[in-house]
Amino acid sequence: MPAAAAPALRETAAVPWRPRVDAARLRRRGRGWTLSTLAHTIPFLATAVLLIALEPLSFPVAAIAVVHAWGIPALYANRGANVVRPRPRAAPASERAALGLLGDLLGHEARELHARTGLAMERGRLGVWLVGEAGALLVAPGGRRVDCWCVRVDGELPSGDRTAHLLLALREDEEGFATVANLAFSGALWRLRPRLARAMRPALDAARARA
């Protein structure tokens, strides 16, 4: 008897041109991000070295080139951190009710972590996820790399409902979730961590420890 097909998010039908994401495709996409970052930064570093070699007094200009080489990856990482930044809140009563419902979906440890950081941790086949209100972070196995995914959700919902919506979609079809979501950043975890809100960093540390 053939095995039943894995459930697929209905939202994947809205992006038929996107190949379904799996672990191998994620690794290839990560390498692509790394190569793209190098392509942006190496010319600035090479310019700095060449300037110093030709004229040591050009050090100030070379320093500007180095700052650009450092700043471009930092801008990408900042864009990645934005996917889990808190959104505007609904009425307090609605927020409390939504957080209570979200808590029912989480285990004790994940519930406590969400209360402290605003991120819900979920282990999947692709790695360890940290789900926020309008996006998610995926810490890859080994804990050295993180992918940042932006997802469109109803902005009128309370924050807990937005997080619960994404968490349930992730549990239903992890690969489909990654297919529908937009990749905002893929790179070293150490580069993303300083760009996260300070309160969220313990969640990233916990995910890295479990990846």
Rank of each mutant, 00 (worst) to 15 (best):
P88Q: 08
P88T: 09
P86S: 06
L106Q: 00
R31C: 09
C148L: 01
L102S: 05
R111S: 10
G132H: 07
L168R: 15
L45Q: 08
V15T: 09
R201V: 07
D161S: 07
G107I: 06
L119A: 03
M1G: 15
I64S: 01
R201S: 09
T47K: 00
D205F: 02
P2R: 14
R125Y: 07
G103M: 09
T12K: 14
A8C: 10
G124Q: 07
V139Y: 08
R111H: 14
L126N: 12
L113Y: 08
E175I: 11
V66K: 00
S58Y: 03
A39N: 08
R210V: 14
V151G: 01
R27G: 04
P141M: 12
L167D: 11
V128H: 03
S94M: 07
E11H: 13
A136W: 03
T41H: 08
T47Q: 00
S186I: 10
R79P: 15
G71W: 12
L101V: 11
E112K: 13
S186Y: 06
A13I: 06
S36C: 12
R162L: 11
G124E: 04
A199W: 02
R195H: 15
G32Q: 00
T117Q: 08
L75V: 12
R125G: 12
A13S: 07
W190N: 12
A211S: 14
